[in-house]
Amino acid sequence: MKIFNVVFCVLFVLFAALQFNDPDPYIWVPIYLYGAIFCALAVAGKYYKGWYLFGILAALTYAVYLFFAKDGVLSWMTEHQAENIAGTMKAEKPWIEDTREFFGLFIIVIVLLVNFVNTGQKSAKKMRKKMMKIR
Protein backbone atom coordinates (compact mmCIF):
# COMPACT_ATOMS: atom_id res chain seq x y z
CA MET A 1 0.00 0.00 0.00
CA LYS A 2 2.88 2.36 0.68
CA ILE A 3 4.21 2.08 -2.88
CA PHE A 4 0.70 2.65 -4.25
CA ASN A 5 0.33 5.84 -2.19
CA VAL A 6 3.84 7.12 -2.97
CA VAL A 7 3.22 6.68 -6.70
CA PHE A 8 -0.14 8.45 -6.60
CA CYS A 9 1.13 11.19 -4.30
CA VAL A 10 3.85 12.01 -6.84
CA LEU A 11 1.41 11.75 -9.76
CA PHE A 12 -1.14 14.02 -8.11
CA VAL A 13 1.52 16.64 -7.39
CA LEU A 14 2.61 16.46 -11.03
CA PHE A 15 -1.02 16.68 -12.19
CA ALA A 16 -1.50 19.75 -9.97
CA ALA A 17 1.64 21.39 -11.41
CA LEU A 18 0.38 20.79 -14.95
CA GLN A 19 -2.84 22.65 -14.15
CA PHE A 20 -1.18 26.06 -14.05
CA ASN A 21 -1.55 26.41 -17.82
CA ASP A 22 -5.22 25.39 -17.58
CA PRO A 23 -8.03 27.96 -17.79
CA ASP A 24 -9.21 26.99 -14.29
CA PRO A 25 -6.18 26.08 -12.14
CA TYR A 26 -7.92 27.46 -9.03
CA ILE A 27 -10.27 24.45 -9.24
CA TRP A 28 -7.91 21.69 -10.33
CA VAL A 29 -4.77 22.42 -8.30
CA PRO A 30 -6.65 21.99 -4.99
CA ILE A 31 -8.45 18.88 -6.28
CA TYR A 32 -5.21 17.13 -7.20
CA LEU A 33 -3.42 18.35 -4.07
CA TYR A 34 -6.27 16.92 -1.99
CA GLY A 35 -5.46 13.49 -3.43
CA ALA A 36 -1.72 14.04 -2.95
CA ILE A 37 -2.10 15.07 0.70
CA PHE A 38 -4.18 12.05 1.63
CA CYS A 39 -1.82 9.70 -0.20
CA ALA A 40 1.12 11.25 1.68
CA LEU A 41 -0.74 10.85 4.98
CA ALA A 42 -1.44 7.19 4.16
CA VAL A 43 2.28 6.67 3.51
CA ALA A 44 2.86 8.03 7.02
CA GLY A 45 0.31 5.54 8.36
CA LYS A 46 -2.39 8.13 9.00
CA TYR A 47 -5.80 7.33 7.57
CA TYR A 48 -8.84 9.58 7.64
CA LYS A 49 -11.86 7.57 6.57
CA GLY A 50 -14.27 10.51 6.77
CA TRP A 51 -12.05 12.71 4.60
CA TYR A 52 -11.69 9.93 2.03
CA LEU A 53 -15.46 9.66 1.90
CA PHE A 54 -15.83 13.44 1.56
CA GLY A 55 -13.31 13.49 -1.32
CA ILE A 56 -14.99 10.56 -3.05
CA LEU A 57 -18.44 12.15 -2.82
CA ALA A 58 -17.20 15.58 -3.95
CA ALA A 59 -15.28 14.13 -6.91
CA LEU A 60 -18.21 11.91 -7.92
CA THR A 61 -20.58 14.85 -7.77
CA TYR A 62 -18.33 16.94 -10.01
CA ALA A 63 -17.77 13.94 -12.32
CA VAL A 64 -21.53 13.48 -12.78
CA TYR A 65 -21.81 17.18 -13.62
CA LEU A 66 -18.99 16.89 -16.20
CA PHE A 67 -20.57 13.77 -17.67
CA PHE A 68 -23.91 15.46 -18.39
CA ALA A 69 -22.67 19.04 -19.03
CA LYS A 70 -23.45 20.62 -22.41
CA ASP A 71 -19.93 19.92 -23.71
CA GLY A 72 -19.25 17.05 -21.32
CA VAL A 73 -18.35 13.41 -21.62
CA LEU A 74 -21.72 12.36 -23.02
CA SER A 75 -21.34 14.97 -25.76
CA TRP A 76 -17.80 13.72 -26.47
CA MET A 77 -19.07 10.14 -26.82
CA THR A 78 -22.22 10.79 -28.85
CA GLU A 79 -21.73 14.00 -30.84
CA HIS A 80 -17.97 13.86 -31.35
CA GLN A 81 -17.51 10.09 -31.77
CA ALA A 82 -15.16 9.86 -28.77
CA GLU A 83 -12.39 11.63 -30.65
CA ASN A 84 -8.83 11.34 -29.35
CA ILE A 85 -8.46 13.27 -26.08
CA ALA A 86 -4.68 12.86 -25.98
CA GLY A 87 -3.86 14.26 -29.42
CA THR A 88 -2.70 17.65 -28.20
CA MET A 89 -2.32 18.91 -24.68
CA LYS A 90 -3.93 22.23 -25.60
CA ALA A 91 -7.61 21.44 -25.77
CA GLU A 92 -9.46 24.01 -27.84
CA LYS A 93 -12.58 21.86 -27.78
CA PRO A 94 -14.53 22.06 -24.50
CA TRP A 95 -15.75 18.44 -24.72
CA ILE A 96 -12.14 17.25 -24.75
CA GLU A 97 -11.26 19.39 -21.71
CA ASP A 98 -14.33 18.20 -19.79
CA THR A 99 -13.62 14.57 -20.67
CA ARG A 100 -10.02 14.84 -19.48
CA GLU A 101 -11.20 16.44 -16.26
CA PHE A 102 -13.78 13.66 -15.82
CA PHE A 103 -11.10 10.99 -16.08
CA GLY A 104 -8.87 12.92 -13.65
CA LEU A 105 -11.71 12.83 -11.14
CA PHE A 106 -12.20 9.14 -11.84
CA ILE A 107 -8.55 8.49 -10.93
CA ILE A 108 -8.91 10.45 -7.69
CA VAL A 109 -12.07 8.53 -6.77
CA ILE A 110 -10.36 5.18 -7.35
CA VAL A 111 -7.31 6.13 -5.25
CA LEU A 112 -9.39 7.53 -2.39
CA LEU A 113 -11.67 4.49 -2.56
CA VAL A 114 -8.70 2.12 -2.31
CA ASN A 115 -7.48 3.98 0.77
CA PHE A 116 -11.01 4.08 2.22
CA VAL A 117 -11.35 0.29 1.86
CA ASN A 118 -7.83 -0.24 3.22
CA THR A 119 -8.73 1.84 6.27
CA GLY A 120 -11.74 -0.38 6.89
CA GLN A 121 -9.57 -3.48 6.64
CA LYS A 122 -7.04 -2.02 9.10
CA SER A 123 -9.87 -1.23 11.54
CA ALA A 124 -11.21 -4.78 11.25
CA LYS A 125 -7.72 -6.19 11.93
CA LYS A 126 -7.36 -4.04 15.06
CA MET A 127 -10.79 -5.16 16.25
CA ARG A 128 -9.89 -8.84 15.74
CA LYS A 129 -6.65 -8.34 17.72
CA LYS A 130 -8.57 -6.74 20.59
CA MET A 131 -11.07 -9.59 20.57
CA MET A 132 -8.26 -12.15 20.69
CA LYS A 133 -6.74 -10.39 23.73
CA ILE A 134 -10.08 -10.45 25.55
CA ARG A 135 -10.40 -14.21 25.12
Rank of each mutant, 00 (worst) to 15 (best):
K70L: 01
I27T: 14
T99N: 10
P94Y: 03
F15C: 09
L66H: 05
Y32C: 10
A59G: 07
V13S: 14
I110R: 04
R135H: 08
W95D: 00
V64H: 15
K126S: 09
K133A: 07
Y48N: 09
V29S: 07
I108H: 01
T88E: 05
V73Q: 10
E101Y: 05
A17P: 02
D71R: 01
D22I: 03
K2T: 15
I27E: 15
R135Y: 07
K90T: 10
E83D: 14
D71I: 01
W28D: 03
L41H: 15
Y32P: 03
K133R: 10
F15W: 12
Y52A: 02
V13W: 14
K70I: 01
E97P: 02
K70E: 11
L41F: 14
I27S: 11
V73F: 15
N84K: 09
I3H: 05
V114Y: 03
A69W: 06
E101H: 08
I37S: 15
L57K: 11
K130A: 08
K70W: 08
K70C: 00
C9T: 06
V114L: 08
F38N: 11
A40S: 14
R135S: 06
V43E: 03
A17D: 05
T119P: 02
R100H: 04
K129S: 07
L74F: 09
M132P: 00
T78C: 02
K122E: 05
G104I: 00
K122T: 08
L14A: 12
